[in-house]
Design a protein around this nucleic acid. Structure first.
Lengths: 243, 243
DNA sequence: CGCCACTTTGAAGCACTTCAACATATGTGG
DNA sequence: CCACATATGTTGAAGTGCTTCAAAGTGGCG
């Protein structure tokens, strides 16, 4: 690779994402590439990668596939606290903090584990990387907050529709939307765990969305035939996803 | 002030909090004190300090009083996304990110505004401060996640009771709990905005908690006569608040 | 082929909302 | 310090969005 001074595009999803948040020099990008030059970990669908209570020594980055953050209550209730897409950080260690959630693979996934010390050293040494990562943190925080608003204030149809808009937007940003459709490997049970609804009601709500022509979901592929209409009906405003 | 090498306690709420998260040297503490040596901003109750869309140049720290993060939907629905107590960060700028929520004072408050550049410089230069702040970030994130679980999975009684447990614990950590009781300046309307319930149902739920002897709330003072019983009934586990 | 996970539909129940009214604090200007 | 306005708290009665329970249909995979 030639060490160009102009920024360049990367197909590494983390680099791709950070570049969207803050301009990076090619030196920054090479530093990231060096960090990422470690063997991937591969996991089968429906397996747990990190568990609540863990204190991993690595920063884990999702490279391919879908995963989710899951919180379980002692009585068995489950809440999905976020979907993880390529380029997302699964966890970044700090002090001796333990994970308060688990990470579950929804599809087959590949994960980049980077030693926490090397990761923090590179980001501390490079202001542009530090800023890009800080921006990413704010966006992540904003996504979590939107989920909170979703659960606190919205109807079932709004919750599910808003979630679809968010995922469509995030997947589009990493080039995983083909036309208007994209792979959507989430079951109705999981959709219920993410939106605080029962699987039965998720099913009925999907039917309503379908009958209104707002979604087209079959065989794990989701299409949004009228994205603008759906965004309006669910009060989706992408501002919080793109600083 | 003598420059002792052993850590010391501070009545500055931010220092107090960071010390709980990671050990700080007295040099670290003095650096923080120098940062905080700026005129406080005072605000009356029920006023807005930061607004959605703002891009402040300061890190704002709540020094006295209660505030909250508020998200408003275009149609007027309101979701409180977190209560802010002394020592909490109201916002920490990153890149050119805009606020996705507003900050509302619930009581009279005093706020410490610190220039973002000076703040980031000190924390980048001092590893112990950086770690303490990173731990704080994870705890903040975990609190948000618990709120999500609250709204997604819990009944009205569990939501409100769990919130009371969280606030009791956080206030206790900064010395604002006197015996079993503490000042609780939140109205029932606001409690509804935080828990995704109508004020009417908040009222009925408070009555139920009262009749079961789990709370004693009057004239803006909240007492938890049986904290352990309440924690058990609401599945409250303080692990996520204390790494 | 047969199992198991996922999806779909119906019917009944209930936690929470909505609408409405009144009671009680809180604060403010005269 | 009272009079009045306004915010906050309380209670009742009716409605509804979502849950629960139950059962059957569909599809992927060993």
């Amino acid at each position: 690779m030639v060490n160009m001074t102009a920024p360049m595009l990367s197909n590494d999803p983390l680099i791709h994402r950070l570049q969207r948040f803050h301009p990076l020099s090619s030196d920054d990008i090479h530093a990231l590439e060096r960090l990422s030059a470690v063997p991937r970990r591969r996991l089968r669908a429906r397996t747990e990668f990190l568990s609540e209570g863990d204190r991993p020594g690595q920063v884990s980055i999702l490279h391919e596939g879908w995963a989710c953050k899951l919180v379980m209550l002692p009585d068995g209730r489950r809440q999905i606290a976020g979907f993880l897409l390529p380029g997302d950080l699964l966890w970044r260690p700090a002090g001796d903090v333990r994970l308060d959630y688990s990470v579950q693979a929804l599809t087959e996934v590949s994960i980049i584990p980077i030693g926490a010390a090397a990761f923090e050293f590179q980001f501390a040494a490079r202001p542009a990387l530090a800023t890009a990562l800080a921006v990413r943190d704010r966006v992540e925080e904003a996504i979590q907050r939107r989920w909170l608003v979703n659960l606190g204030q919205r109807s079932a149809l709004e919750r599910i529709g808003h979630l679809f808009c968010e995922l469509h937007h995030r997947l589009d940003a990493i080039g995983l939307v083909d036309g208007t459709g994209f792979a959507f490997p989430v079951t109705q049970v999981e959709l219920g765990e993410a939106t605080g609804l029962t699987p039965v009601h998720v099913n009925r709500t999907l039917r309503a969305l379908r009958h209104q022509g707002l979604i087209d979901l079959e065989s794990r592929t989701l299409r949004l035939p009228q994205p603008a209409e759906l965004a309006q009906r669910t009060l989706f405003d992408p501002g919080y996803l793109e600083p």
